[in-house]
Design a protein around this nucleic acid. Structure first.
Lengths: 197, 197, 197, 197
DNA sequence: CATGAATGAGCTTTCATTCAT
DNA sequence: AATGAATGAAAGCTCATTCAT
């Protein structure tokens, strides 16, 4: 029952979010609320009204990127080829995290930390979509056996972490994604070439 | 260069390290120096004398695990099979990080952050050893083209990160390592089986 | 003088008072206006319109108990026995304060603090009634010499304070009241028994 | 095992206490630690080191007056006349609270609130001494039956409260004390004169 | 060298009060 | 009138770091 925000409240909320985004972009994800209030030119109280905790602000920051990710995840369930789905999904996951460090942090923590129901809801939908993609790939025998939904999630977060370690993450993502996908793919059962591997 | 410490100084140093290790083991890597001093039963000043910064303490904490890793990296350069070398190296990397969170943090940062020369030296030796392993695997055509030494480093740190996200990291490492290795391996050049991938 | 309130305004006023009473009953007499507004389901502004200060709200809260006390004080002036009047008056004072902490606070402060004319008026009437009771008891030689109206007021507030310190105030009031009355009573002039006291 | 404070530490502690005393004397017993630090010219941290909570500071403030009270309570157990003991004890109680508002607050709260062991210890010794005085007076049939140690404590705190309500507490204490003592004294058993009271 | 007291910046949090809607 | 968002002053508290002893 989210009633529409009053005009000025919405304006302030946006201002705080924008400031927080700027602060986060500078590499500081600790999001000190009073500092943000100062830079946004609003009272501390205002920040606390909109975002009672650092985590609530973090999730609000990540919300857009999360929505985009969900869109792409939905798309990933719709293609014909099961493996394409996996690839689309993981690329979306990866890009989302690189484009928005807040999303990276949200995805790297569990639902128990969630401050906002919307986040948990998104998390659940994302899980459901990923489960579909996973199931199709598994059924098609394309996915390495033994991998759970959680494993996928962890590995894609790890890959985002890896990319962030690079000097130019953007120029490394595709390669790292390729590595990840190759690693996830079911090993060649006929494997005559390299039996010992 | 390293003058031998007075007996009591050495004892204090060890006490601080042990306490820090205990604190880190409890999951708190922020290493609050005051708290550590208190728990170690020494003055804060003593902690600062031995470890001027949090980072210096972190590297001291990681030193043992780092040495072990170097040993294993040396071993990895000595085997017959180029790919075995890669596997040994990455497994050592991974285990080292899981067994010692301090090492994980050290390996996930760059030499510029180093507070202690020994760390940088270790880093360089590790790089040299990894370069050997990498070169052999590359020469044997076993490694996916385009991967640099840094990429390996990032990916293995990312994999450690992924494992730490799991509820029971230790039960997931081998699987994640398998995924990583499979992803790093050069793709089958004859690739008749799955043309579209 | 008091213009009749619009129906909704009156409803809001009552709602705020009821909430404040509930909050006070929970033992928190600080009456945080924001909190009360929230719990009453009205805006803070509404609370401020009806009760410009915390004190105004406090006095409004105490008003009923104050009126009851006035009734009993009037009755105390009407009996035959002068001492009965004192007893009735003080018991009413005491009970009123224990039953309503807001009244206790109002009675323990002076008219200068009053935010509402009605409170000051009540205070004055109460003073006049008590003066009557006091005068009759004094004239009958039943009251310890030297006690002023203010002294009575202070002592009865102090006795209420004493009762509130007890674990079960209600089970201690009568005893404490007995002590107070015995203390206020004029000492036996024939006092042959214990001359030195 | 209170080791002697370092000279500068002791100086600071005293400075904080003095400032707190000044603040309390101005009538503000809320003892805001920040404000006190500022006025004392020391860092907040210093205040917190010496007095972790407002309550700890309050008890430290009250300590001297508490010690004096204990001295007088000891004296009250030593006299010949049981009733003199009661009088000495209650006068000491009363004067202590009026002279030091911090002591008044400490005595009006229970041991559960105590932040400092010394306070609880003092409280216990005071209780023991009062028990002696009470027992002697009771045995001598001088004390009104039914009164417990706690009742005495509550009533004397209430009387201090009453005195504080007066414009010139110091000029009212003796009278209020007389009232209290008269109230506590066992009623005349031969009481033929005023049967109904 | 060791100690630990002192410092003070920085963050969180709460509320009374104002004021735009 | 009513609403409730915004404000910002006050505290509270924690810690990294310095420095007198």
């Amino acid at each position: 029952m989210t009633t529409t925000l009053r005009a000025d409240a919405a304006r302030n909320r946006e201002r705080v979010l924008a400031t927080a985004r700027a602060v986060a972009a500078e590499g500081d994800l600790s999001l000190p609320l009073n500092e943000i209030a100062r830079r946004a030119g609003v009272g501390v109280g205002t920040v606390y009204r909109h975002f009672p905790t650092r985590r609530a602000l973090l999730e609000a920051l990540a919300a857009d990127a999360f929505a985009t990710l969900l869109d792409q995840a939905r798309a990933a369930t719709r293609g014909d080829d099961p493996w394409d789905g996996v690839e689309l999904l993981l690329r979306a996951f990866l890009r989302g995290q690189l484009d928005d460090p807040a999303l990276a942090e949200v995805l790297s923590t569990s639902a128990e930390e969630d401050a906002i129901a919307q986040t948990t809801a998104g998390r659940e939908e994302l899980g459901a979509l990923a489960a579909i993609v996973l199931a199709r790939a598994t059924r098609a025998g394309r996915l390495r056996p033994g991998l759970t939904l959680d494993d996928l999630q962890h590995l894609v977060c790890g890959t985002a972490f890896a990319a962030r370690l690079a000097d130019a993450p953007d120029r490394r993502v595709e390669l790292y994604l390729t590595v990840l996908l190759a690693g996830l793919r079911a090993p060649d059962p006929t494997g005559a070439a390299r039996p010992a591997d």
